[in-house]
Amino acid sequence: MEDGAFRKAELISKYLSGDLSPGEQEEFRQWLDADAANGKLLAELENEEQLDRDLRFLSDVNSKAAWENVGARINNPVPEPRLPVYLGYWKYAAAVLIFGLLSYAVFDAAYKPKGSVVVTEAKQAVGNDVLPGGDKATLTLADGSIVSLEDMENGTVREENGIRVSKKDGQIVYELVKQGNNTAVTYNTITTPVGGQYSIVLPDGSRVWLNSASSLHFPTAFTGQNRDVELTGEGYFEVAKNEKMPFMVQAGKTNVSVLGTHFNLMAYANEGVTKTTLLEGSVKVGNGSSSRTIVPGEQALTGENVQVRTVDTEEAVAWKNGYFQFENEDLRTIMRQLKRWYNVDVDNEQQIPDKHFTAVISRNTNLAQVLRMLEMSGELEFKIEGNRITIQENK
């Protein structure tokens, strides 16, 4: 979370508890005068009934992690959250709410314990709500037969031509069980639907995580000079090192060449640009007419040419780690991600308000809770009707 957002939270919590110094009073007045929305936000915080409702909403999230992170930033002992709010906890409650209202999330990735999520588990959808996606995929074999992986038990799917295909603990694993030069190479395709994700271990030991609405076309054995695969949608790759046989990914007009590395490749057709984000090693990214080599912490954007920029890699791979991470992201991009994960549509997509959000939200969260977090900005109202989302801008 940006220090600016925390500073605003600190000023408001001090104002509510009467602890502003003379200098801070002027700083607070300037913030209040800067935007009419700031006054509206303050009025909402001073409304005890609204405060109680918001805290009850936040009680549905992983409050222990949230309070520990808020306490660490304030550098004070961390009290257990209680509802309704007692006077002794007022500034902590205000700080938690302001973090939500100004940064549109309970806590930011920089202060989130590794492996933790905002919401511990999805709740059963009630009324106008939608459950999150999950591990769903189909495997298309060389003979054209299609295997649904979602409900399949662990065990061997098929073994032929020296290749064993198995499901193990929620992933598909390809293993070479018969050595020799006569291994017949065929091609398989793993496909995730909207609202699905899956991982696969390829014959060379490389592992690929597929995001929703994605597919990977690959050989059942790697022979020849390169290890060639084709991606649509988005995938995170942990490529087994083999200096004699480069790993090549083709995603539309973008091609990525590596020897052994970790990277994320986002190539959804409706995103307008392909993004290759490197976490480890080095990769060469090209589009047929130009190419660039990037290093860890860099992202290559492929359109008419290849551009390179420095990025927060955690944001790029957040989906693979089980959460949404938005850093001043525009609402249109956010809604595209929600559409793919919750299998919903958005009314009047061309008229989505030009708003930006910063948030860290578990992908294991029901859709209604995700939209409620975005509503905490006070600028928008979301409604779910069946599998459609409508957005209304508050005037």
Rank of each mutant, 00 (worst) to 15 (best):
Arg53Cys: 02
Ala122Cys: 10
Val130Phe: 03
Leu131Phe: 03
Leu97Lys: 09
Glu121Arg: 13
Leu58Asn: 06
Asp108Val: 03
Leu101Asn: 11
Phe99Glu: 11
Asp108Ser: 12
Pro79Gly: 01
Arg73His: 10
Ala43Lys: 11
Leu58Asp: 01
Ser103Glu: 12
Ala105Cys: 10
Lys123Pro: 02
Leu83Asp: 05
Arg53Met: 03
Ala66Pro: 05
Leu83Asn: 09
Ser116Ala: 11
Val130Ala: 04
Glu68Val: 02
Gln124Val: 15
Ala94Gln: 08
Ile98Pro: 00
Leu97Gly: 06
Pro81Gln: 15
Arg73Glu: 11
Leu55Val: 07
Glu121Val: 10
Lys123Ile: 13
Gly71Val: 09
Ala94Tyr: 08
Pro84Cys: 11
Phe99Leu: 12
Ser63Pro: 00
Lys91Val: 06
Pro81Leu: 15
Glu80Val: 13
Tyr86Leu: 15
Ser63Lys: 11
Leu45Ala: 09
Leu131Val: 10
Leu51Phe: 09
Pro81Lys: 15
Tyr111Gly: 12
Asp54Tyr: 03
Ala125Phe: 06
Val61Asn: 00
Gly100Ser: 12
Glu48Lys: 15
Phe107Tyr: 13
Tyr89His: 14
Val85Ser: 12
Val126Ala: 11
Val126Cys: 04
Pro132Gly: 06
Thr120Pro: 04
Thr120Lys: 07
Pro79Thr: 01
Val130Asn: 02
Ser103Ala: 14
Ala105Ile: 00
Tyr89Gln: 13
Val61Gly: 05
Asp108Tyr: 04
Tyr89Cys: 02
Tyr92Ser: 04
Tyr111Pro: 00
Ala65Gln: 01
Tyr86Phe: 15
Ala95Gln: 07
Phe107Thr: 12
Ile74Glu: 07
Leu83Gly: 07
Gly115Ala: 08
Pro79Tyr: 02
Ala94His: 03
Glu121Lys: 13
Ala93Ser: 13
Leu55His: 08
Ala105Asp: 07
Pro113Trp: 02
Ala94Gly: 05
Arg56Ile: 11
Glu49Lys: 15
Ala109His: 01
Val106Gln: 00
Glu80Lys: 14
Lys123Asp: 09
Val117Pro: 00
Ala65Cys: 01
Arg82Met: 13
Ser116Asp: 05
Trp67Val: 02
Ile98His: 01
Leu87Tyr: 05
Ala125Asp: 06
Tyr104Asp: 02
Trp67Glu: 02
Gly71Lys: 10
Leu131Pro: 00
Asp60Phe: 09
Leu131Ile: 07
Asp108Leu: 04
Thr120His: 03
Asn47Ile: 07
Leu83Ala: 08
Pro79Arg: 03
Leu55Trp: 10
Pro132His: 02
Ala66Glu: 07
Pro77Ile: 08
Ala122Val: 09
Leu131Asp: 01
Lys91Trp: 11
Leu51Pro: 00
Leu55Ser: 06
Val96Tyr: 08
Pro79Ser: 02
Ala72Cys: 00
Lys112Ile: 04
Pro84Arg: 12
Leu51Lys: 08
Lys114Met: 06
